[in-house]
């Protein structure tokens, strides 16, 4: 075998479990293991602050990786991620609108609505006679993203005092996460599972739309499913943690190099890897990073790594 699918997934699973334990155990305040069940403050730190944050980071990482993998297959384009079709810009605009006009009231709802709404808008504009040509969808997404970014810039320009809060939010982070958000984030595994059920169809659609029709895939229906399931996943991710870049772009690439192009293996591997990367990025910022926005870390490490992957691939 060229690729080591099952072994990779097993290793990632073990690594993620251990990492979650380590992440819960570490933080700015040191909490001795013995004190967890005796000291109320220690109990609170572990179960109400660290644990929900760790779970949220894992789920958001999984959501971004799944959405990115699905988008890359749908667009047959390795540069695609959930943000390319305007999902991120829509989510950011929703969040910023909430900060500017409602002082942050209902921010997650606005972010989610913005993300899914932007996707729906792109879909509606790109749709022609019951079909969504992939190139049109991609270009419409890019154009709409620019438009939404312009609106975002305008809001920031006129926002006055809340500018600091906006900028902080846009960079992405988990510092406000509580159990409430984790309950919402439980939709993420459901979305991932739904997309995974279509893994074989996704393999086939990556060969081309016409060929997929010839092999019995209901292509247009699959496009809608992937588009909206990805938008919901990315929307939830944005609503919890802001606009975190690069996880959705890099993890599918990284894992495709290791486990191969079969989405039945690629999805679980990317989900675990996305979760692992985001968990460690957040743990780093929590402990050593002075709570800087996690989006800075993912971009700072992700972009050079992505360039390395590109170089290596073109050398083959």
């Amino acid at each position: 075998m060229r690729y080591r699918g099952p072994a990779t997934i097993f290793l990632l699973l073990v690594a993620l479990s251990l990492s979650m334990l380590i992440a819960v155990a570490t933080g700015p305040t040191s909490v001795p293991f013995a004190s967890i069940f005796q000291d109320a403050t220690a109990h609170q730190i572990i179960f109400d602050i660290r644990l929900p944050r760790v779970i949220a980071a894992v789920l958001v990482g999984a959501a971004l990786a799944t959405a990115g993998t699905a988008m890359q297959a749908l667009f047959k384009n390795p540069m695609a991620d959930p943000y390319i079709i305007g999902t991120s810009a829509g989510g950011s605009l929703g969040a910023v609108a909430s900060i500017v006009f409602l002082a942050g009231f209902g921010l997650p709802v606005f972010a989610f609505t913005g993300a899914v709404g932007a996707t729906f808008l792109v879909y509606t504009i790109a749709r022609r006679g019951g079909k969504i040509p992939v190139e049109t969808l991609l270009l419409t997404g890019v154009a709409l993203s620019m438009f939404l970014s312009a609106m975002l810039s305008f809001l920031m320009y006129t926002s006055g005092k809340s500018l600091h809060q906006i900028v902080f939010w846009l960079m992405g982070g988990f510092w406000t996460v509580s159990w409430d958000q984790v309950w919402v984030a439980l939709v993420i595994p459901v979305g991932c599972l739904l997309i995974y059920l279509f893994a074989r169809d996704i393999n086939i659609i990556s060969l081309g739309d016409d060929e997929a029709v010839h092999l019995g895939v209901n292509v247009e229906q699959l496009k809608i499913l992937l588009l909206f399931a990805s938008a919901v996943l990315a929307g939830i991710a944005v609503s919890i943690a802001g606009a975190i870049g690069f996880i959705g772009l890099i993890t599918p690439h990284l894992m495709r190099n290791i486990v191969g192009p079969d989405h039945r293996v690629l999805f679980p591997a990317a989900i675990l890897a996305g979760a692992l990367i985001l968990l460690w990025a957040d743990t780093f910022t929590r402990t050593l990073g002075n709570e800087m926005p996690v989006g800075i870390i993912t971009a700072f490490l992700g972009a050079p790594f992505f360039m390395y992957l590109l170089r290596r691939r073109s050398a083959v």
């Binding site: 060229r2 047959k76 393999n203 990556s206 060969l207 081309g208 016409d210 060929e211 029709v213 010839h214 092999l215 019995g216 895939v217 209901n218 292509v219 495709r256 191969g260 192009p261 079969d262």
Partner: peptide, 25 residues
Amino acid sequence: FRMLAQRVAVVPQETAINFDFTVSE
């Protein structure tokens, strides 16, 4: 679509397959 693909198969002219699936896949 499934039923049609059970009855009708198409061999296209020339395809560039970008993802490196194996022949048996």
